[in-house]
């Protein structure tokens, strides 16, 4: 039982929560750039938090169901049609064998998540279904992005309570994001005036933005030190190369590197960053590790306690 990829769109990738425990052989995490939208898609279907979804960048994915089941799509506002009829995102929908599911191109945001009841049943590689194109790992095979006529295995689900997330609770993807930064790594190498410049400047997203990292443009915050031993790079790390322009490293980053880092953007905010486009802006706000943990605990509480609205058939 499966769905057929009729049109893959610009970039559609199978992603579960990510690949963990394989950094020692040089493998990165992969996983959804917007963890929050990904989590909502799975919650709307009652899926496991690690269930595999399709991350659609920019839009254009078309699927043909060959099975009766349910889907939910969250994230960027790509217009959804099922059998030619417009349908809302942030909602679970019934699809039947023969249904055509099509996503247009987003006006707000860049990534959407297409989840199916029970998750896409695609192969595991190093404990995860996540696709990392650069590493040729995961996806249907060898890290390939989705392509015409791919068959995506999924379970038949004859009946399931449908839900929607009310609009008030849906994230809004604007053209600006304020990113919380946990200071760390070589932050002591950045003198106080450079740090002030970093936290009071507005940076612009360049078009060198992909799943490895986002290059930003704005005030120069070089720290003067460039000779460093390569070291482990975590998700969200903000690397400042000699040109003083920050790069926020994301899911498909190299696991080691030798540029100075001022700290790391929190995961809840890399999710926002991932929905921006070239020309959009970001600012950075410092947060200590204690407040970062509190913010994450609050976000988790909010996610689990926000009620979904049941849809009566």
């Amino acid at each position: 039982m499966s769905m057929l990829v009729a049109q893959p769109g610009l970039l559609s990738l199978l992603q579960d929560a990510g690949r963990f425990g394989a950094h020692h052989i040089g493998l990165t995490n992969g996983g959804p750039l917007d963890q929050q939208a990904f989590a909502w898609a799975n919650r709307l279907l009652g899926n496991d938090a690690n269930a595999c979804a399709i991350e659609v960048s920019f839009g254009g994915l078309q699927l043909q169901a060959q099975v009766d089941t349910y889907i939910a799509i969250t994230g960027a506002d790509m217009p959804l049609q099922i059998d030619g009829v417009a349908q809302p995102l942030w909602t679970s929908h019934r699809v039947t064998a023969g249904s055509k599911i099509s996503l247009g191109f987003a006006q707000q945001g860049t990534r959407a998540y297409v989840a199916v009841a029970g998750g896409w049943q695609t192969p595991h590689s190093f404990g995860s279904r996540s696709t990392v194109v650069r590493e040729k790992i995961g996806g249907l095979s060898n890290g390939a992005k989705l392509t015409d006529n791919d068959l995506l295995a999924c379970n038949a689900t004859p009946s399931l309570q449908r839900y929607t997330l009310e609009q008030d609770h849906q994230p809004q993807y604007g053209s600006h994001a304020d990113l919380h930064v946990v200071l760390g790594y070589q932050q002591a190498l950045f003198n106080p005036s450079t740090q002030r410049r970093f936290f009071t400047s507005t940076y612009t997203m360049t078009d060198r933005a992909d799943r490895m990292g986002m290059r930003l443009e704005g005030a120069n915050v070089a720290c003067g030190t460039q000779q460093m031993l390569s070291e482990g790079i975590c998700h969200g790390a903000i690397q400042i190369p000699a040109d003083g322009q920050p790069i926020v490293l994301l899911n498909d980053r190299q696991t080691i590197g030798g540029y100075p880092k001022i700290g790391s953007v929190m995961g809840q905010d890399t999710a926002r960053l991932a929905q921006l486009r070239p020309g959009d802006t970001v600012t950075f706000t410092p947060v200590d590790i204690h407040d970062a943990h509190n913010l994450n605990a609050l976000a988790a509480y909010r996610f689990h306690n926000t009620p979904l609205h049941a849809i009566d058939e």
Binding site: H23, E231, G232, I233, I289, N296
Partner: peptide
């Protein structure tokens, strides 16, 4: 996960199970 390198070790932990 962990990333050992030349003179450092990056240690990544489950923040929802523990604290710093």
């Amino acid at each position: 996960d962990m990333v050992p390198s030349y003179a450092s070790l990056l240690v990544i932990y489950q923040a929802h199970l523990t604290d710093h």
